[in-house]
């Protein structure tokens, strides 16, 4: 257990340092959410919905967390392929899943730049007061959501092992998940058939918990769902990564780009 925790910590730290050195990744994590935050402010102002400004600021940050998780986790295998580190990673003694998890966790953690940036942007540029309804719950919700998205990232990364154009799927999945998880648009506006889909996506519950902790409401049911889905994702990722690793070895396609 201590070895697993140590591997996770060292892997997370290494990948955080590596991602923080990537100008493109940081730029995308900060600039894109700021553009979306600004767009939402003016859109809600034009629609005479001033009460939703903190909601907009918070939502843009949460959207940024999903973006960094998606692009980071979706690209995790491709990057290792390009860098020539995939084979040594797969050949190393720890299970592949335990090596990949700190990486996907780090990509989700980078999303904290987005949340911080949009909240500060809202506070100092648009003068939106930042009064958290439940600060302690907020402080718990954010890391729990990050770990949860890291687990979802593992499912995404595992699922993309055999898909050569994984980054194309990452490009496509940004907007639909924002939409289906109610990141900015309430789910009640979407068709009924979308709702069951949103229930099995953990960002729905993570966003809901963080929002309830910040703006007001009961965050605990959503946090509970985060834990349940996080465990389910871990099992699913373990199965997928194992299966795809085996297939890639059998077909000798591990390093094919």
């Amino acid at each position: 257990m201590i070895r697993i925790l140590r591997l996770t910590w060292v892997g997370w730290l290494l990948n955080m340092k590596s991602l923080t050195r990537s100008g493109l990744f940081i730029f995308t994590s900060v600039i894109e959410p700021l553009i979306f935050a600004t767009l939402s402010y003016y859109l809600f102002k034009a629609g005479h919905r001033p009460g939703t400004l903190l909601y907009a600021s918070l939502s843009a940050g949460l959207m940024g967390i999903w973006t960094s998780t998606l692009f980071g986790s979706g690209g995790v295998i491709s990057w290792q392929r390009w860098q020539g580190t995939l084979e040594p990673t797969v050949a190393s003694p720890p299970p592949l899943m335990l090596v990949l998890f700190p990486l996907t966790l780090a990509t989700a953690s980078i999303g904290l730049y987005s949340l911080t940036a949009t909240l500060l942007w809202g506070r100092f540029v648009f003068g939106i007061p930042l009064h958290l309804a439940h600060p302690a719950t907020f402080a718990l919700s954010v890391p729990l959501m990050i770990v949860n998205l890291g687990a979802l990232g593992l499912v995404i990364g595992g699922g993309f092992i055999l898909y050569r154009n994984a980054n194309a799927l990452s490009n496509m999945l940004e907007f639909p998940v924002w939409l289906v998880t109610g990141a900015l648009v309430p789910l009640s506006l979407l068709p009924g058939w979308v709702h069951p889909l949103s229930w099995i996506l953990s960002p729905t519950w993570g966003f809901r918990a963080v929002r309830a902790a910040a703006i007001g409401g009961d965050a605990w049911p959503a946090l509970g769902m985060c834990v349940v889905l996080g465990v389910a994702y871990a099992f699913l990722a373990s199965y997928l990564v194992g299966l795809f690793e085996f297939r890639a070895r059998v077909r000798a396609t591990l390093s094919l780009t």
Binding site: A46, H48, R49, N171, E174, F175, L179, L184, L189, L190
Partner: peptide
Amino acid sequence: GHPLFQILFFAYLGRFSHV
């Protein structure tokens, strides 16, 4: 795919914002 979902996202955002 990306353009399709971008259009849907902003159309629903438009409905929510009443702009």
